[in-house]
């Protein structure tokens, strides 16, 4: 396994295969918890942890798990890590836990995680799977953080984590669900423009 292969698997999640924008996957949290930058980042980080751990365990077990029960096995592994993240968050980051609410248990059904297990960890070794999980997870976290920042700036009128006001009259629309769709659409458009070949 060469350093180049590792780099390739890592970098793809950051731009060419960045989950919410290239595949439009994992939209439930992408739209649901990005009204502030902090929540977007917290959600992304939680998903990142689950993704890396699940990818690692699934790739270790890839030769043991019979094909017929693989999806059930993956879901058990993923659900276990989600509950772990939930418990750790409730113990050590209680305010974030309260603000994310129902979206933490919903990581179980985040199709990015099952998708990476099925598309990557099933076929590759543990090291590459961890790298893949890291790349995809960081890409997802960056997307949510960016979307959260945009919605917070436009919807609340303040730069996140500061008292600096940039909009005297914020577009409150961006704090609500329809605004999430519009912000996501704008970002998708910009990504497509930038990524045009």
């Amino acid at each position: 396994m060469s350093a180049a292969a590792i780099k390739k698997e890592f970098v793809k999640g950051l731009w060419t295969d960045i989950p919410p924008f290239r595949f439009v996957l994992g939209l439930c949290p992408t739209l649901g918890v990005t009204d502030t930058m902090f929540k977007g980042f917290g959600m992304g980080a939680a998903t990142l942890c689950v993704l890396v751990c699940a990818n690692f365990i699934i790739s270790l077990l890839r030769k043991v798990i019979p094909d017929e029960v693989r999806v059930a096995s993956y879901i058990v592994v993923i659900a276990t890590f989600v509950v772990c993240v939930e418990m750790v968050m409730e113990a050590f980051a209680y305010e974030l836990f309260l603000s994310l609410g129902i979206f933490i248990p919903l990581i179980v059904v985040n199709c990015i995680i099952l998708g990476r297990a099925e598309a990557f960890a099933k076929k590759n070794g543990p090291v590459l799977s961890i790298v893949d999980g890291l790349g995809m997870g960081i890409g997802f976290t960056l997307s949510l953080t960016a979307l959260g920042a945009i919605r917070e700036i436009l919807g609340k009128g303040f730069i996140p984590f500061t008292d600096i006001q940039v909009l005297a009259e914020p577009f409150e629309f961006f704090q609500q669900a329809p605004g999430a769709f519009v912000a996501l659409g704008l970002m998708l458009g910009i990504m497509n423009l930038l990524g045009k070949k």
Binding site: I65, P66, V76, T80
Partner: peptide, 18 residues
């Protein structure tokens, strides 16, 4: 049998970890 054993082992390990 292998299917059952594997699933049981995974869920057991998961339960213990949690």
């Amino acid at each position: 049998i292998k299917m059952i054993v594997v699933l049981v082992c995974i869920t057991l390990a998961s339960g213990m970890a949690l």
